[in-house]
Design a protein around this nucleic acid. Structure first.
Length: 725
DNA sequence: GTTAGGG
DNA sequence: CCCTAAC
C-alpha cells in the first residue's frame, strides 16, 4: 500500500494583538516559542504554589519581552551589516512533538546580551530531530545526508546590573542563525563540552528567587546617558566581563540544574577567556540565509526605529523560534544611548505596565517595558517615532510637556501595546526536512520583510492616511479618541519567492513623510473581503467586491490620492485586508493551533450600524443569517453572530446614557430605531409564543401596508447595496 | 449550520 | 469577539 506523504500545514498565527497574546497566555504550550515551565512542587503550601505560579508567569512575560527587545536591538543596530542572519521560524505541533523524541545533547554557549548591562547566558540544546517519526512514511523519503537537527536555546537571562540575579529562565526557544547548516555538518555536537540533557526542553524550574523586588539601581554614574541606568557594582557583575571590548563570552554553568533545579546567579561562571560558542569554534558557519537578511538589515538601516521594532516585534510574536545572530560577529552594545537595562523586579508585567502608564516620564527610564516613544511633535509633521519594540496599538495619554518652549507644541505620549501581526501560512510536505521548513519559512518571512512594512495608523477603527496632518488635527493629542488609536503593519511590497536584490533601500521604509505606496501586493494575495459599508474616500481599497471585485489592489492610486487630500481629514476605513494579503500559500487545512487566534477587533462603523438596523427592522431579531445575507453579504468579516452581537450591544448602548457610551458615537437617530425595532420584534416574538398563530404578523405599528417601509425612516435607502441574490 | 445567551 | 448549548 502506498502511503502518500501527508502534508503538514504550518500555521503561523498572526494578526493577534500582542498584548492579548501575553495577557491571555496564548503563548503557552509552545505557541510563539513559549513554554510553560513547571511550577515548583510545593506540596504543603498552596500559597507558595500560587506565588510560584505567579512568578513563573511573570518570568515568562519578562523573558518574552526580553526577546522582543533583543530583536528590536538587533534590527536597529545592525549597521555594519555583519550581522548574521537571524530568523524566526514556526513549526507545527507534530514537529514539536517529534522534537521531544530525539536524542538530546546540550551545548553550552554564550551570547552577550544586546542590551546594556544584561547578559544572555543561554544554553543551547541540540536535538536530533526525529523528522520522520511517522512510521507510515517510507524511509526512503528521508534524505540521505543527515537528520536535521533542531536547535533549541534555553535562554537564561541574567541581569548584571541587578546583581546577577536571575531575571528569567524561560523556555523560550531561540535558535541559532546557522542552525540548519551547522547542524548538518554535525560539528555542533563536538564543539563544546557536551552534557547530556535529559530534561525535556520545556522543563524548567526556578529556585525561590532572591528578593527580586529590589528597586532597580538608581542611575548613578554621571557620565551615563540620562536614559541609561548604570549598572552598579555587584559581586556578579564584577565578575562579568565588561562589554567595552565589544563581545564577551559568558558561560552559564548550572551543574545542578535538575528538576528541582536552582539556577542561582552565583553559579554563573565567567569563562570569557574561552569562547565556547559552538558555532564559532568550528568556523563552519554558513549563513546561507544571510542574503535574505540583508533585506532586514537594510530595512533597519534605512528606516526609523519604529518600523524596525515593529517588524521584529511582529515576527517575534508570530513565530516559534528565533534565530539569533552569532555573537562573534558583532558587538551590539555600542549604542548606550538606547541601551536598556533590564528591570530587576520580577513584579508582574501588568504591574509594571500600569506603573509605566501612570508615570510615563520617569519610570520609563530603566523600565524594560518602557516605551521609547519619542514623539517629537513638529510643526508641520506628525511623524511619530515609536521605538517601542513591543509594538503598537497605541494608547496615548495626552501629556503636556512643560518644557515645550513653544506653547503651541504639545507632546503626546503613546503607550504602544501591540501591532497587529500579519498572518502567514506555509504549506510544506510532511516529508520535508526541518531544515527545508526553516528555509521555507524564512523565505516567506523574508519575502515580506524585504518588501518592507508600512506602519498604518488607525483611529477609531479608521485608517488615517493623511500623513501630513498633525496629530491634533486628528484629535490624537487628547481626548478619549486616543484609546482607539492603533497601529498596523502592512506589507509594502511583497515579492514572494524572489531573490533578494537589494541595495535599494528606498524600498524599505515606512512611517515616513512619504509613505511608500503599498504597491505590488503579490498576485497570490487572497481575495479580500471588502466592507462595502465602510464609506471611504478610498474606493480602491474599500470597494465592494461586488462591484469592483477584481481590483484586488491598486493601492498606489489610493495613496497618490492621499497626498492630494491634504486639506481634509483622511480618515479612511481600515481596509483590514492586510493580513490576508500576506498569506504565502493559501491555507488548506488550518488546524488551528491551540486556541486559534482571536479575530482582530473591527468596530462597526456608523454605516454598518445603519445597515444592520435597517435589516433588522425588516427582518426581525431572530433571523441573523438573513440579516447577514441581506446587508452584509459582502462583508466576510461580519458573521451573523457578529451581527447578532452587535445588535445586542446596540440595544444596550441605546439604553444607557450617552456619557456611558464608548467608541465611535452612534447617531441617536439610529439608536432610536434600534430601540423601536427591538421593541417591536420582541413583541412579535412574544405574541408568537403565546399563540402560534400569526405566521407572518404584519408588522408595524401603523400596520403599514408595506412592512419593508415600516422602519425605513427618512434616509431610507441603505448605503449598502442590498445584496441582490 | 443557526440561534440564543452568557462570558 | 468567543464559546456553547440547543435545535
Amino acid at each position: 500500500m502506498r502511503v502518500a506523504p501527508q502534508v503538514a500545514v504550518l500555521e503561523i498565527l498572526g494578526g493577534m494583538n500582542l498584548w492579548d497574546m501575553v495577557s491571555q497566555k496564548r503563548l503557552d504550550n509552545g505557541f510563539g516559542g513559549y513554554r510553560l515551565p513547571p511550577i515548583p512542587h510545593f506540596p504543603k503550601s498552596a500559597k507558595r504554589k500560587r506565588s510560584a505560579r505567579k512568578r513563573r508567569d511573570d518570568e515568562q512575560l519578562c523573558a518574552f519581552d526580553l526577546l522582543v527587545e533583543v530583536a528590536g536591538k538587533l534590527s536597529s543596530e545592525s549597521e555594519n551589516s555583519t550581522l548574521p542572519p537571524f530568523c524566526i521560524i514556526g513549526r507545527s505541533k507534530e514537529v514539536a512533538k517529534q522534537d521531544l523524541l530525539g536524542n538530546k545533547e546540550e551545548l553550552k554557549t554564550e551570547i552577550p546580551d544586546l542590551l546594556s548591562n544584561t547578559v544572555l547566558a543561554p544554553e543551547i540544546v541540540v536535538k536530533k530531530q526525529v523528522a520522520y517519526a511517522s512510521n507510515k512514511l517510507p524511509q526512503a523519503s528521508k534524505p540521505e545526508h543527515s537528520e536535521p537537527l533542531c536547535l533549541r536555546l534555553k535562554s537564561k537571562i541574567y541581569d548584571t546590573a541587578a546583581g546577577g540575579s536571575v531575571v528569567s529562565n524561560s523556555g523560550i526557544g531561540i535558535g541559532c542563525s546557522a542552525s540548519t547548516d551547522i547542524c548538518r555538518s554535525g560539528s555542533i555536537r563536538k564543539s563544546s563540552e557536551n552534557r547530556l540533557e535529559l530534561e525535556a526542553m520545556d522543563i524548567y524550574s526556578l529556585e525561590d528567587p532572591m528578593d527580586l523586588d529590589v528597586k532597580p539601581p538608581a542611575p548613578a554614574s554621571s557620565d551615563s546617558s540620562a536614559e541609561v541606568p548604570v549598572s552598579r557594582d555587584n559581586p556578579c557583575s564584577s565578575s562579568m566581563p565588561k562589554h567595552e571590548s565589544g563581545i564577551e563570552h559568558i558561560v552559564h554553568r548550572d551543574d545542578d540544574d535538575n528538576s528541582s533545579g536552582c539556577t542561582h546567579p552565583n553559579t554563573i561562571t565567567n569563562k570569557a577567556s574561552r569562547p565556547t560558542n559552538c558555532i564559532g569554534d568550528h568556523g563552519e558557519r554558513n549563513f546561507s540565509a544571510s542574503k535574505y537578511w540583508k533585506a532586514a538589515i537594510n530595512l533597519s538601516k534605512s528606516t526609523n526605529s519604529a518600523s524596525d521594532y515593529a517588524i521584529f516585534m511582529a515576527w517575534l510574536t508570530s513565530f516559534d523560534y528565533m534565530l539569533l545572530p552569532d555573537i562573534q560577529r558583532k558587538p551590539f552594545l555600542h549604542d548606550k544611548k538606547t541601551c536598556y537595562t533590564r528591570q530587576r523586579t520580577q513584579r508582574s508585567y501588568f504591574k509594571r505596565r500600569k506603573l509605566f502608564e501612570r508615570c510615563p516620564v520617569s519610570a520609563s527610564n530603566r523600565g524594560f517595558f518602557r516605551m521609547k516613544v519619542s514623539n517629537t511633535f513638529k510643526k508641520d509633521s506628525n511623524k511619530l517615532e515609536a521605538h517601542d519594540p513591543r509594538g503598537t496599538a497605541i494608547r496615548a495619554n495626552g501629556v503636556t510637556s512643560p518644557k515645550a518652549e513653544q506653547s503651541s507644541y504639545k507632546s503626546v505620549k503613546f503607550s504602544i501595546k501591540s501591532f497587529k501581526i500579519p498572518e502567514l501560512y506555509i504549506e510544506i510536505p510532511e516529508t520535508a526536512t526541518v531544515g527545508s521548513l526553516k528555509r521555507a519559512v524564512m523565505e516567506a518571512v523574508t519575502a515580506i520583510l524585504q518588501g518592507g512594512l508600512h506602519v498604518g495608523v488607525i483611529l477609531q477603527g479608521k485608517k488615517v492616511r493623511d500623513d501630513n496632518k498633525t496629530l491634533c488635527q486628528f484629535g490624537i493629542s487628547n481626548g478619549d479618541a486616543l484609546d482607539s488609536l492603533g497601529f498596523t503593519l502592512e506589507p509594502t511590497t511583497t515579492q514572494m519567492a524572489q531573490q533578494l536584490t537589494s541595495s535599494d533601500n528606498s524600498r524599505f521604509l515606512c512611517l515616513d513623510d512619504a509613505v511608500q505606496p503599498l504597491a505590488r501586493i503579490p498576485p497570490i494575495s487572497l481575495p479580500i473581503d471588502r466592507d462595502p459599508s465602510d464609506a471611504s474616500p478610498q474606493p480602491a481599497l474599500t470597494s465592494c467586491p461586488k462591484s469592483d471585485h477584481d481590483s484586488v489592489h491598486s493601492p498606489t492610486n489610493t495613496l497618490s490620492l492621499d497626498k492630494t487630500t491634504e486639506n481634509k481629514l483622511a480618515l479612511v476605513a481600515l481596509p483590514a485586508m492586510d493580513v490576508e494579503a500576506l498569506a504565502v500559500v493559501p491555507l488548506r487545512n488550518p488546524k488551528r493551533l491551540e486556541h486559534a487566534q482571536r479575530r482582530i477587533r473591527r468596530p462597526f462603523s456608523v454605516t454598518e450600524v445603519e445597515a444592520l438596523v435597517e435589516a433588522v427592522e425588516k427582518l426581525g431579531t431572530g433571523r441573523w443569517r438573513d440579516v447577514k445575507l441581506r446587508a452584509f453579504d459582502t462583508a466576510k468579516h461580519r458573521t451573523y453572530v457578529d451581527l447578532k452581537d452587535k445588535w445586542k450591544t446596540l440595544v444596550h448602548t441605546a439604553n444607557i446614557s450617552p456619557q456611558q457610551r464608548r467608541g465611535e458615537p452612534v447617531p441617536q437617530e439610529l439608536l432610536d430605531r434600534v430601540l423601536s425595532a427591538q421593541a417591536y420584534w420582541s413583541q412579535q416574538q412574544a405574541k408568537l409564543r403565546i399563540k402560534e398563530e400569526p405566521p407572518l404578523p404584519l408588522p408595524p405599528v401603523l400596520c403599514s401596508s408595506d412592512p419593508n417601509q415600516q422602519f425605513s425612516s427618512s434616509s431610507s435607502s441603505s448605503l449598502l447595496e442590498p445584496v441582490g441574490t
